[in-house]
Write a protein that binds this DNA or RNA. Structure first.
Lengths: 243, 243
DNA sequence: ACTAAAAATTGACTTAAGTCAATAAACATA
DNA sequence: TATGTTTATTGACTTAAGTCAATTTTTAGT
């Protein structure tokens, strides 16, 4: 759907702050933004992002959804969680790769069709670079979560997610426990039991807020990439500080 | 190491066939290839691809290695297998993301430094597009393997890998069973037991060659992206043919 | 503030895949 | 073609996380 004039301005301002559009000349950007489209999705709505229908690039303006794959038995895995400002770009997948988007909240997505994205990236080299950064980031995130899923125990997974939240979201669990559990490839029951076990080590969860008896209980679950955004990175207490 | 004149020509010919360099004007390509470097690695050699030292783009000229992550206890997961013609590009990872390359054979890697890659992609839009395709492919491959690892039983994983080999490598297992097992996130013993169970369903393995009692035993393990390269894709027998 | 619905927890039990150890098959190099 | 080494298989046993069912806690709408 093409947005009304009144909405356009706020969409433009929002988009201009997304890393995908960073360091691009404002005139070119505004011109590109003319082709933005908008779509609303309802809570619990499920959409298959098959590339034929969805050869687009989506940006979450508001709301939350998870990208999932579901098998014949109804078992579901979460590939990624898409929050406000996140970019999901099925136009870059194979036409035979289907993923399912499950909306956790009423959501507004802004999107561009593949042809306009491609033609803009041909004209504008910085935009190409931004796409490269976006995809490189996805690759790294997927490699990291693969490591977490395959190498860590239930308790370590939860510990890892908590440090992650500590460092990136200032001690707040950003989503429901069930959603985080499925992102970590575990059942809510196991998540709950892992939290119980962490509590014995001094890691408490007051509703969604992480509380530590003394500051460093979670450090041992930290990975280096996450850690590099920590204020104590490479300090004496930091496990990544090996000399 | 800078290659000798005599070797240059064969490297150039090899590189020109890699998708990363497809559809680029030959003169520009040859000019870019002047900056290629070469490095040899020995069987069982292990190298950490930390971004500081390895802010490069590698192409496997000959040999084989696996990209792995290893934890404190020595447990290892395989992130990807890099075979001849494959591109591995640590320059696109965060400087804090370390992966380990373990060489399975004596290998020769060609590589370009980040600065020359970046400057070529600034000048040449097609090259930018090829990098985007390369990364988009990695994303999709990682999403697919995540699905395989989390959603499938041991037997289904092996079945999936076998169809994969059937379709892409004409019925040959390309690597050792132990390597394939670890790529599938399982132990060699479990791989072996899964093969035993598949044998009961008419799937035999004569050394590394897959033999089917009647043609379609493996179809139920096929995913749609892999299937799209199958000669019988969407035929009557094909499970992706739902009407 | 009240109620219904949704989300999270806890306990008892099950299970698929891992571990460890012994043996067998395949490979590579003389 | 023999020999030592690596890779694969098989069997007995263990275990971490899943399942199912019963509560309890939290959330959201009136």
């Amino acid at each position: 759907m093409i947005p009304t004039k009144e909405h356009q301005n706020k969409y433009y301002k929002f988009l201009a702050k997304i890393p995908l559009f960073a360091n691009i000349d404002e005139d070119e950007l505004i011109n590109f933004f003319h082709s933005v489209q908008v779509k609303q999705f309802y809570r619990n709505e499920m959409v298959t992002f098959d590339a034929e229908e969805h050869s687009k690039c989506y940006i979450v303006y508001e709301g939350l959804f998870k990208l999932t794959k579901i098998d014949e038995k109804g078992e579901e895995i979460v590939i990624s969680i898409a929050d406000v400002k996140d970019v999901v770009s099925p136009m870059h997948f194979s036409p035979h790769y289907d993923v399912c988007a499950e909306f956790m909240k009423k959501s507004t997505l802004l999107y561009f069709n593949k042809d306009v994205v491609d033609s803009f990236s041909t004209k504008n080299n910085q935009f190409s670079n931004n796409i490269i950064d976006l995809l490189a980031n996805s690759v790294q995130k997927l490699m990291l979560i693969k490591e977490v899923l395959q190498l860590k125990s239930a308790k370590e997974k939860v510990g890892w997610y908590l440090v992650h939240s500590k460092i990136n979201n200032t001690f707040e669990l950003p989503y429901s426990k069930a959603l985080i559990a499925s992102y970590l490839g575990m059942k809510p029951e196991s998540f709950s039991r892992a939290l119980l076990s962490l509590k014995k080590d001094g890691v408490h969860l007051n509703n969604k807020t992480v509380i530590l008896e003394n500051e460093y209980e979670l450090c041992k679950y930290c990975d280096k990439v996450t850690g590099s955004s920590c204020t104590s990175f490479l300090s004496n207490q930091c496990i990544h500080n090996r000399t």
